[in-house]
Design a protein around this nucleic acid. Structure first.
Lengths: 254, 254
DNA sequence: ACGAATTTGTGCGTATGTATT
DNA sequence: CAATACATACGCACAAATTCG
């Protein structure tokens, strides 16, 4: 039963004809290697020939992967010197009873910004109505928002609110760039997280563009309900985080 | 500022020459459509020609996507009748202070099973040593395990334990298929979750094989520390969940 | 029972993208 | 940069199974 375990830097064959180009698979593995510490943050990547041998592909293919990662800002190539891993640590986003975007990133980034992408009053679908405790088909205000940290997009959220109770939300958010501040203008001075469900999937074309990601990128998805101090649901939201830039920390206490 | 919002079934152009094959992008969107309710669970998918038109591709390309999803068990195609969405709800896995695999899936699946893939005693790397409160290079027992629900693989975990304190763990786990039971045999009757960090990435070739996933599949990753009632770290683990089959629920209470 | 319409399954020729040498 | 091999995507045509009037 006790077998050998693969060495950390082991050679795993790339899959051809899998629908994902080899250069992209290799780009993913290099990105992953940086996240896991196989390739040192801020350090130099092994030379292209060594990487080609390790991944079992041609040097041209490795160059394609590196070019894509340079484009993304993950790597920086210097002629004659080598290819270097850009320093860009993952942001930790805490999930708990008290979850607020700006407060969450305090100390990790210099400044945060929220931007309103779109808003509309629409009839609630069954999922939204159920979450907010409204009748199916009731009018809800939908806000599409983008959150940035130090100028880099971090997450894209779609939130739904009772259109009657929170009629001024879209303007309040557009002015302040903060859900917490917008709630305050609607008379909600405090709120808590009732539930959070986490999943992951590939980003679709719209999200890729909004979050400045390249095709095939992954988003962490949180579906959450916020409630006021009286326990009434006030916000239902689906937030998409760029999985390359964010990790979610489950906060037990609070 | 208040703009129009895309209709739910809107046509978003697929990206050609992005390193990800069109059929795979479309497979992802169909899978996502099922998750979001655009395509009814248990219902019939629109005919291939309609899907081809909606996604702006050839019918062959749609067929490639459908073939991949049939292979995964997401769809079922019948000549002359149509293509149907297989009923396979996502498993909810709760993350909280009291997190145990079998108890977690109670009521959602009929039976759970744990299998030991490999074990080895290795020197601790800095991350593992830090998590377990050991000196760097101390001997740790590493277990690679696979957890199944109703015969389908759900997660693949790598766990590290103090090799001295938990010398019998590998046999205990191999016999019982349960970390909780294996701990009990080592004199640990109770334990709690100290911390959990969630991220997501593409599965590598080894994990694809272990979890019976197809290339390009996503895994939800939890990195966690368990501690005994005295607050000493006893287990450091990295668990990879098949993102298509599992969602993580953040449990506030408990 | 029959044929028309619908839907999935299959074949082939061509153009382009990807990867190696 | 060129030559080569394979994967991907398209367009057209037709076969096979099912449904329905």
């Amino acid at each position: 039963m006790t077998e050998t375990i693969e060495a950390p830097g082991s050679v795993t064959a790339m899959e051809r004809g899998s629908g994902v180009a080899l250069w992209r698979q290799i780009a993913d593995r290099i990105r992953q290697g940086i996240a896991e510490g196989t390739f040192e943050e801020g350090g130099r990547l092994p030379p292209e020939i060594a990487l080609a041998e390790r991944f079992g592909v041609n040097r041209h293919t490795v160059r394609g992967a590196i070019a894509a990662l340079v484009q993304e800002g993950v790597l920086r190539a210097e002629q004659g010197r080598g290819t270097f891993v850009q320093h860009a640590p993952r942001i930790s986003y805490a999930l708990g009873r008290y979850t607020r975007f700006s407060a969450n990133l305090q100390g990790q980034v210099r400044e945060t910004k929220g931007r309103l992408l779109a808003s509309a009053v629409v009839p609630a679908d069954s999922r939204t109505a159920g979450a907010l405790g409204l009748d199916a088909g009731a009018s809800v205000l939908r806000l599409d928002t983008l959150s940035e940290a130090d100028g880099h997009p971090v997450s894209r959220a779609t939130s739904w609110f009772d259109a009657i109770r929170f009629s001024g939300m879209e303007d309040a958010y557009a002015k302040t760039g903060s859900i917490t501040a917008a709630f305050a203008r609607c008379g909600i001075d405090d709120y808590m997280r009732r539930s959070t469900v986490v999943s992951a999937r590939h980003a679709d074309a719209t999200v890729l563009a909004d979050l400045s990601l390249s095709a095939g990128a992954i988003v962490l998805v949180t579906v959450a309900i916020n409630e006021d101090p009286e326990g009434r649901a006030i916000q239902f939201s689906e937030t998409l985080f760029a999985a390359d830039r964010v990790e979610l920390v489950v906060a037990e206490g609070l």
